Simulated assay, not measured.
Amino acid sequence: MTAAGRTVLLAGATSPSGLTLARALLAAGARVIAVGRDQEKIDALAAAAHPAADRAGTGSGTGSIRVERCSLTNEAEVAALADRLAADGEHVDGLVPLVGGWRGGGGLAGQTEEDYRALEQSFTAVRVTSRAFDADLRASDAGRFAIVSSTAVARPLAGGANYAAVKAASETWTRAVAQGFAKAARDAGEPLRAAAVVLRVRSLDDVVDALAARVVALWDEDAAALNDRIVDVA
């Protein structure tokens, strides 16, 4: 199996890392659904990621891209997005939440509630999107759910306590998704086809190309070997 022909939803795709991942998936022949809450930004991402002639899957023979506007922390909007895609015959094989950012510094005393609530949105997006597309990922013959976490989870610092706590919560949720995939396969008496994985980075800016390559490679590995893994991306 490869990423070619797979439909991968990038949730919060308008960051520089979202563009890099979109380009890598398109080059691998995947169908990318780029989701963000700012229409101008996701339109710009599509234009930068892929030539206009190829957005419908024609032209160079690489993948295709579709953009969708949605607030990824709003459960109703994400559910509506899932329904809209299903109505159009779009069945998601991969989900990568990219809502994030960093706030911190100032030691433990500098960890404000305002910063925590801002960072918490990334965890909310992980929870909301994974629930909305859980059925799609289980139904796929190669469903993949991957989050981008941080090595700070393994070694949290006082000045980044809010950030590390949110990332740790997201990792715990992702491992629960992995257990759900495994249990569903066992209960159905079928081989495991879906996998949930945590991709840890130290500094995203330094490894964004390696991260994109690792996401594309998720479809090169057997689900049973990949599910519930924590992978350090260097």
Rank of each mutant, 00 (worst) to 15 (best):
A82V: 14
R186E: 13
T112S: 02
A142S: 11
L119M: 14
A195D: 05
V166Y: 00
G143K: 05
A164L: 04
K183Q: 15
R155Q: 04
L137A: 06
V166P: 06
K167Q: 12
V96A: 03
A165Y: 05
A146C: 07
A165V: 09
T174F: 03
A165D: 07
E90P: 00
L72M: 09
A146F: 08
E90R: 07
K167L: 11
L72S: 07
R131W: 04
E171P: 04
V153A: 01
G105N: 02
A164V: 14
A161V: 09
Q111F: 00
A82T: 10
L157D: 07
D83R: 15
L72T: 02
V153N: 04
V126A: 03
G89W: 06
W102Q: 07
A195R: 02
W173M: 13
V128C: 05
G105M: 12
W102K: 13
V208F: 08
L72E: 01
R175E: 08
S122Y: 03
A158K: 03
A210R: 13
R127N: 09
Q111C: 01
A146R: 00
D187M: 07
L199Y: 01
R127S: 08
Y163S: 06
E190I: 06
A210L: 01
A82K: 08
R144H: 01
V208G: 07
I147H: 04
T151G: 10
R131L: 13
T73W: 09
R200H: 13
V177G: 09
L137S: 11
P97F: 01
A169N: 00
N162S: 10
C70G: 05
I147G: 03
Y116L: 12
A169G: 04
